[in-house]
């Protein structure tokens, strides 16, 4: 089925983080814990699905010349909605994601899908694409957040997995900024090796 393909490509084949290198800012900044990654992933998914939907609906009405400002307004609106709703109903999560919620506006993944997909595809397809990209983004964030939280704090989703001793003396760098870059490097390297194996023989 066609629709499934539009959805599934976001998860591995065209994964926004690992294959398109989009959305790096939240990917590196808020993945200090799996919980943050889940919250950020859910918020980004919501925004990309909604903006894909609206951009696709309006694709014949928005003149080419002002399309980018229009997309930005649409995206910013949804982000602000998420910001307000999250602040009201999930204050704990809102506090820990902090400045990065408003910064979803500048997540290139979202504008990238609006410009690269939603403005030339049907509404249904755009929804599937946005959902796939959002899920792919969330999974990528959970992957790196798992490494960072386990190494840097000894826990996974706040559950102690490596024992009390490790928890008291973790590899702190993993949840600091340089750790994010180093772990990302290893993950990207692993993906490249897998790709090469697949392509090679």
């Amino acid at each position: 089925m066609r629709l499934w393909g539009e959805f599934a490509k976001g998860i591995y084949k065209e994964n926004p983080v690992f294959k398109q290198a989009l959305g790096m800012c939240p990917f590196l900044a808020v993945t200090t814990s799996v919980e943050n990654a889940l919250g950020m992933g859910a918020a980004s998914t919501f925004v990309v699905v909604c903006s894909n939907f609206l951009v696709s609906v309006l694709r014949k009405l928005i003149p080419r010349k002002v399309r980018i400002p229009c997309y930005i307004v649409i995206i910013a609106t949804f982000v602000t909605l998420v910001d307000m709703v999250m602040n009201a109903y999930a204050p704990q999560l809102h506090r820990s994601l902090g400045i990065f919620i408003p910064l979803i506006v500048v997540n290139c993944m979202i504008l990238g899908r609006a410009e690269g997909f939603a403005n030339k595809n049907t509404v249904i397809k755009s929804l599937a694409d946005g959902f796939g990209m959002g899920v792919g983004f969330t999974l990528a964030m959970i992957l790196i957040a798992s490494f960072r939280e386990i190494l840097g704090n000894g826990t996974w989703l706040a559950v102690n997995v490596l024992g009390e001793r490790f928890h008291n003396q973790p590899v702190l760098i993993a949840i600091l900024a340089p750790g994010a870059f180093i772990i990302m490097g290893f993950i990207l390297g692993t993906f490249n090796i897998l790709e090469r194996r697949k392509a090679g023989r």
């Binding site: 928005i62 002002v66 910013a76 609106t77 602040n87």
Partner: peptide, 21 residues
Amino acid sequence: ILMLVALVAAVALGFVNSKTA
């Protein structure tokens, strides 16, 4: 057209804000 888009966005945000604030 831009103004229209912005207007709709502003109204929507204003409404949600009045509920969540």
